[in-house]
Computed example of a mutant assay.
Amino acid sequence: MGPEEITKLLARTALRDRNAFDRLYRLTSAKLFGVCLRVLKDRAEAEEALQEIYIKIWHKADRFTANDLSPITWLVAVARNHCIDRLRARKKGNRPLDEAAEIADAAPGPEAQVAASGERRRIDGCLNELEAERALAVRGAYLDGETYAELAERFSVPLNTMRTWLRRSLLKLKDCLEA
């Protein structure tokens, strides 16, 4: 699964190509499910969120531009942001409406789980190359759904410092993953 293939599938999905969308789902659902599970920490809620995320992807695939981000980064951002929105709604006592009740079970199959575990090892290896505090901040922001303000408070640094830490850490991770 290369970025070029995912970019093409997103472009075809934007044109409402159901076969492309199905292939995109099969190639990326394990990774996005992992993001959902890490942020939400509840399998049932993560499965529900994944369904909602793919509905968003179906409707917003035309918003992806290959120049801005890698396609998987864009998909992960969609998933992460959706899950963080769910967490915020949970904190406020509101549960999002179940827009995806009629979508089939989104649990990844065994092949997708194996692919996701290989990708996970690569990401963990790259995270281990970061300074310990930076790696914890990245995990907090992008895997656990903590806000920049929460992280700044936890690490006793100014908010802009936390933003800089995360931006620089993401650039290092990108370089490591592309190597």
Rank of each mutant, 00 (worst) to 15 (best):
G2S: 12
I6G: 02
T7S: 14
K8F: 10
T13L: 01
T13N: 02
T13S: 10
A14R: 03
L15P: 00
L15R: 14
L15I: 00
D17V: 00
R18G: 07
R18I: 10
N19Q: 11
A20K: 04
F21G: 15
F21L: 12
L24R: 04
L27G: 05
A30Y: 00
A30D: 01
K31T: 08
V35C: 11
L37S: 07
L37E: 09
D42R: 09
A44L: 11
E47N: 05
E47W: 10
E48F: 04
Q51K: 15
E52N: 09
Y54H: 07
I57A: 04
H59W: 03
K60T: 12
A61H: 08
D62N: 13
F64D: 09
T65S: 13
A66Q: 08
N67S: 15
D68P: 00
D68V: 13
L69M: 11
P71T: 06
P71A: 08
P71K: 03
I72C: 05
W74C: 04
L75G: 02
V76D: 11
V76M: 11
A77N: 11
A79R: 04
A79C: 01
A79Q: 01
D85I: 00
R86N: 07
L87E: 05
A89Q: 15
A89K: 12
R90W: 10
N94L: 14
R95N: 09
R95A: 15
P96T: 12
L97F: 13
D98H: 08
A100W: 01
A101P: 02
E102W: 09
E102K: 05
I103A: 09
A104T: 11
A104F: 10
P108T: 05
G109Y: 00
A116Y: 11
R120V: 04
R121M: 08
R121D: 14
R122M: 07
R122Q: 14
I123W: 09
I123S: 09
I123G: 05
D124M: 08
D124H: 09
G125L: 02
E131R: 09
E131C: 01
E131I: 00
E133D: 13
L136S: 07
A137V: 08
V138I: 15
L143A: 15
D144A: 13
E146Q: 13
T147D: 13
Y148H: 13
Y148Q: 13
E150A: 05
E153L: 10
E153T: 12
R154F: 03
R154P: 00
S156F: 03
S156Q: 11
S156T: 06
P158I: 03
L159V: 12
T161V: 09
M162P: 01
T164L: 02
T164G: 01
W165Q: 06
R167W: 03
R168K: 08
S169N: 05
L170R: 13
L171I: 14
L171D: 15
L173S: 08
K174D: 14
D175E: 14
L177S: 10
L177R: 14
E178M: 12
E178C: 07
